[in-house]
Amino acid sequence: MQKFANPVVFLKLANAVLPWVWVLTALLFAIGLYGALVSTPPDAVQGEAMRIMYIHVPAAWMGLFVYVLMAGFSAVALVYRHPLADAAAKTAAPLGAMFCFLALATGSIWGKPMWGTWWVWDARLTSMFVLMLLYMGYVAVWNAIDDPHLAAKIARIIALVGVINIPIVKFSVDWWNTLHQPASVFTMKGSKIDPSMLWALLVMALAYTFLFLALHLVSMRSEIAARKLRQLRSNEIGAR
């Protein structure tokens, strides 16, 4: 692992992998969207409107997954003090916030025909919204602190406190109010979703994962470039 933490090695690897990741993303989206919009049957109760689920559910999963990933990077950065882990956490945050927003927006569009309202203060919506606030706070910390080393240290703390907070928020809003349909893909008794729909959902989840990977690699690349640029500029000022 240590070897890939070298920015030069990382960049080489990222450049080599990236085209393939993009191709795979496009392929998975093509299959997943075909499955979601054309080949899977409409829902018995919800009709065609439930097709938005194929967009909505993976976005919500990714919103959570990316936060955990971000916290993982932050923990690695805290232990090993490696700048690349900070860069990985920093660039993951806006992407995760985007997934959260996508999940909230599609959920809202889905909710209008199903619940008859754009927004309900249901437990899952609320915890997703809080998650988006956590992302925004994290991004704001990076923006508010000028010194990148200091910003990295503070951001690590924010990410790790946030990851402790997520399950507590989840638990408390569940207690507070629940209207959302309960989890149906991963349950103790196996999936409650019919296999004819499940495969498209899983392909979409995979497509989202690869989309995140591609976008993350691109933004890490530009983050590394930005750091180099800052270094060069400060060297230039120092030489004068």
Binding site: V130, L133, L134, M136, G137, A140, V141, A144, I145, L150, I154, I157, I158, V161, G162, N165, I168, V169, F171, S172, V173, W175, W176
Partner: peptide
């Protein structure tokens, strides 16, 4: 503590701490 060195930390504090206050508020009120 997280915003101590910032000149205008006030807004940032509310954004950062609001998610942490959610559970306290829920159980306090309930």
């Amino acid at each position: 503590a997280v915003t101590v060195g910032l000149r205008r930390g006030g807004l940032l504090v509310s954004l950062l701490i609001m998610p942490l206050y959610v559970p306290v508020l829920i159980f306090g009120v309930s």
